[in-house]
Computed example of a mutant assay.
Amino acid sequence: MIEVHLWSSLRSLTGGQQVVEVEAATTGELLKELVRLHPGLQAPIDAGVSVAVDGRIIATGLSEPIPEDAEVYLMQRLRGG
């Protein structure tokens, strides 16, 4: 079971939960399971989110493995200009 810490703006889509638990082995599975459990997360995930695993932003795609004891954060993608 992976604990996913949610960025504050995403918490309203999970009933205010700061941390949700999912079964996932990769970043792609993590996102798919989050949407299955909390369908309201579909739009922000489609718009673009960042997944941080043990302090490292995953930018390599959806097949990045997630260790069982990893610290995982889901954040809305930061945009700047």
Results as ranks from 00 to 15, higher is better:
1 M>S: 13
1 M>W: 06
2 I>M: 14
4 V>A: 15
4 V>Y: 00
6 L>T: 11
6 L>P: 08
7 W>E: 14
7 W>S: 06
8 S>D: 15
8 S>V: 07
10 L>Q: 13
10 L>W: 00
10 L>Y: 05
11 R>Q: 13
12 S>V: 01
12 S>F: 03
13 L>Y: 10
13 L>I: 00
13 L>G: 13
14 T>Q: 15
15 G>M: 00
15 G>A: 12
16 G>S: 13
19 V>P: 07
19 V>I: 09
19 V>A: 06
20 V>T: 12
21 E>G: 12
22 V>T: 11
22 V>Y: 07
23 E>Q: 06
23 E>P: 07
23 E>F: 00
23 E>G: 11
24 A>E: 00
25 A>V: 10
26 T>D: 04
27 T>G: 11
27 T>E: 04
28 G>S: 10
29 E>Y: 00
30 L>P: 01
30 L>G: 02
31 L>S: 15
31 L>G: 09
34 L>H: 10
34 L>A: 10
35 V>Y: 09
36 R>F: 04
36 R>Y: 04
37 L>A: 11
37 L>W: 07
38 H>E: 10
38 H>T: 02
39 P>V: 04
39 P>A: 03
39 P>L: 05
40 G>A: 12
40 G>T: 00
43 A>S: 12
43 A>Y: 02
44 P>T: 03
45 I>V: 09
46 D>K: 11
47 A>I: 02
47 A>W: 02
47 A>R: 06
48 G>Y: 01
48 G>V: 06
49 V>M: 03
49 V>D: 04
49 V>W: 01
51 V>Q: 10
52 A>M: 04
52 A>E: 11
52 A>K: 03
52 A>Y: 03
55 G>R: 08
56 R>K: 11
56 R>D: 10
56 R>H: 13
58 I>P: 00
58 I>N: 04
59 A>M: 15
59 A>W: 12
60 T>S: 11
60 T>F: 09
61 G>Q: 03
62 L>A: 14
63 S>R: 01
63 S>D: 12
63 S>M: 08
64 E>D: 08
65 P>I: 00
65 P>E: 00
66 I>L: 09
68 E>Y: 00
68 E>V: 04
71 E>H: 11
71 E>L: 10
72 V>S: 13
73 Y>G: 08
73 Y>F: 05
74 L>E: 07
75 M>Q: 05
76 Q>P: 11
77 R>E: 02
77 R>I: 05
78 L>T: 04
78 L>V: 03
78 L>P: 02
79 R>T: 02
80 G>Y: 10
80 G>W: 04
80 G>F: 09
81 G>K: 02
